[in-house]
Design a protein around this nucleic acid. Structure first.
Length: 511
RNA sequence: GGUGAUAUCGUCUCGCGGUCUAGGACGCCGCCCUCUCACGGCGGAAACCAGGGUUCGAGUCCCUGUUUCACUACCA
């Protein structure tokens, strides 16, 4: 039963790829890579009513950003194409006919209105063995009547004929055997009259079979229809090559109940999409992780651990580690509430560990936004500046607020800190400090610190007051990295200039 | 309503019959470090859904109930 591993991620281009979908794609990818298998991207656009322009490009861009590589797909090509379902109409028509000929499916002529009426009339109406003979279909009507309706061009759908009272078992790699009785299944529509395309159920099974998919890894919302899919494999005579089923737990709302939705992001103030999305119809803008200052590695790591764990205490894991250690055995069976705070922490960890030079590259656009010419500074200067503050941020975009002072002298001084640290007479002390600093030849952090601290001590001044006033003039507020690391990078000239500016501009505030 | 899945700190979770006075992480609180804000270090509060079994022994196995989630379209 050894089969080459081939998995597919099969989204519908009905909007931006949801973060839950991203996780499904990720798990498919991790498994494929671990097994040396193939990752397929199939576009399931069989609902012509819900097609959204740009959605397919969005899917490609999002997966690329996250480093989820695709081996076969619309753009990548492959031996099993086309990889877009709307281009496979003839294939589906052929297989629907096969089911019809074998008596495993039938024509149904009931209009949507008739079905609605029936549902209104009978409480829990289900189109199945117990009711199908009361409906208008090729099972309940004479053959010549059926032929006449079709010849006259009447609209019809094709429904699967479910045999009642049979136990159907779905073997799921994370849930074990799930058995249901076929009587609770309805005769699902396989082929729609509305747009002359198959429904998900039919297209999915045909494509997975033709594309030789070995493992179907998808969201738990598909578990209830999995028995139908098993029955379809049987009806086609493909039971012996049916893929392994894997139904992943869902991503749930952080608060309240239900699965995570687009609205939760707007409501709770965090992105639920990998990339920013401009809705072409409504004009609405939805925020994305990329634009929010997240690192793709952090998003991948965070998502991977939401519903899976390595079996030990590790949390920070690279894509390679995830590929090596991923297993369905350690997938949770329970839906995971989306914990945005934890996501922030992952990003913080990746930012803290990032190479200074690389982080400097991500920071440069912010310099431009604040009218600072990056070319005025060496790459080393910028790298040292971001390196000093990278452990105190959660997002790339937090960088300017934390190290912008290296590039722009303060234009205002935090009132709260002025009130506390700038008293009458402080200006005199700062003037003396200028003299002390001016006399230092080796302006390195350690040396300048020794001299200044020595001066403070010798004159029996208050360390906190002097240092914070000093900081106020250089940074503009009482926060930031080690004071003398700052002055070392800024240099003697700039440091003194800022102190003098502070002396000229800061006035004590009466409490 | 029906069917299925599910069940450990607020959240993500390790646990696969004794080593559990239940461990880790996020968040929260306190202490330390300290010129500030952070980072970091240390510590704290915080959980086995309920009831029955099985067993010498159950967070771990079984049953029932309950909970939560999903599905129940000519959407995926």
């Amino acid at each position: 039963m050894e089969r080459k591993v081939r998995v597919r991620f099969a989204p519908s281009p009905t909007g931006p790829l949801h973060i839950g979908g991203v996780r499904t794609a990720l798990y498919n990818y991790l498994f494929a890579r671990q097994m040396g298998g193939t990752m397929i991207l199939r576009i399931e656009d069989t609902d012509s009513n819900r097609f959204v322009p740009g959605a397919e490009d969005y899917i490609n861009e999002a997966l690329a950003w996250l480093g989820i590589g695709i081996d076969e797909g619309v753009r990548e090509g492959g031996e099993y194409g086309p990889y877009k379902q709307s281009e496979r109409r003839d294939i589906y028509r052929h297989y629907v006919q096969q089911l019809l000929d074998a008596g495993r499916a039938y024509y149904a002529f009931d209009t949507p209105e008739e079905l609605d009426a029936k549902r209104a009339e009978i409480k829990n109406f289900q189109y199945d063995a117990s009711t199908r003979m009361q409906m208008r279909n090729s099972l309940s009507m004479p053959a010549d009547e059926v032929k006449r309706l079709i010849d006259e061009g009447h609209k019809y759908v094709v429904r699967i004929k479910i045999e009642p009272d049979r136990d159907v078992t779905v073997n799921d790699l994370i849930r074990g055997e799930v058995t249901i009785n076929s009587s609770v299944l309805d005769d699902k529509v396989l082929y729609k009259s509305a747009d002359d395309l198959p429904t998900y159920h039919l297209a999915n099974i045909v494509d997975d079979h033709l594309m030789e998919v070995s493992h179907v890894i998808r969201g738990e919302e598909w578990l209830p229809s999995a028995p139908l899919h098993v029955l379809l494999y049987e009806a086609f005579g493909w039971a012996d090559t049916m893929p392994q089923w894997v139904h992943l737990p869902l991503l749930l709302k952080p608060d309240g109940k239900g699965k995570l939705s687009k609205r939760d992001g707007d409501r709770l103030g965090f992105p639920v999409f990998p990339l920013e999305w401009h809705d072409p119809a409504s004009g609405d803008l939805s925020s994305g992780y990329r634009e929010g200052g997240y690192l793709p590695e952090a998003v991948v790591n965070f998502l991977a651990l939401l519903g899976w764990n390595p079996g030990d205490d590790r949390e920070i894991m690279s894509m390679d580690e995830l590929i090596r250690d991923f297993s369905f055995e350690h997938c949770s069976k329970k839906g995971a509430k989306f914990d945005y705070e934890k996501g922030k922490w992952f990003n913080h960890e990746y930012l803290s560990a990032m190479d200074d030079a690389k982080l400097a590259g991500l920071f440069k656009p912010q310099l431009a936004e604040h009218e600072v010419n990056a070319d005025d500074y060496s790459d080393e200067f910028i790298a040292r500046a971001v390196g000093m503050v990278k452990t105190r941020i959660n997002f790339v975009k937090d960088l300017w607020a934390n190290c912008g002072f290296f590039f722009k002298a303060p234009e205002a001084y935090a009132e709260k800190d002025v009130k506390k640290r700038w008293k009458p007479g402080t200006d005199d002390i700062m003037r003396q400090l200028v003299g002390v600093l001016d006399g230092i030849d080796d302006f390195s952090s350690a040396n300048a610190e020794a001299i200044v601290l020595g001066w403070i001590k010798d004159n029996e001044m208050h360390m906190g007051n002097v240092m914070n006033a000093f900081r106020l003039t250089v940074v503009g507020e009482c926060k930031g990295p080690h004071m003398f690391d700052i002055t070392e990078l800024l240099g003697k000239e700039e440091t003194i200039k800022r102190i003098e500016r502070g002396i000229a501009n800061i006035q004590p505030i009466d409490a």
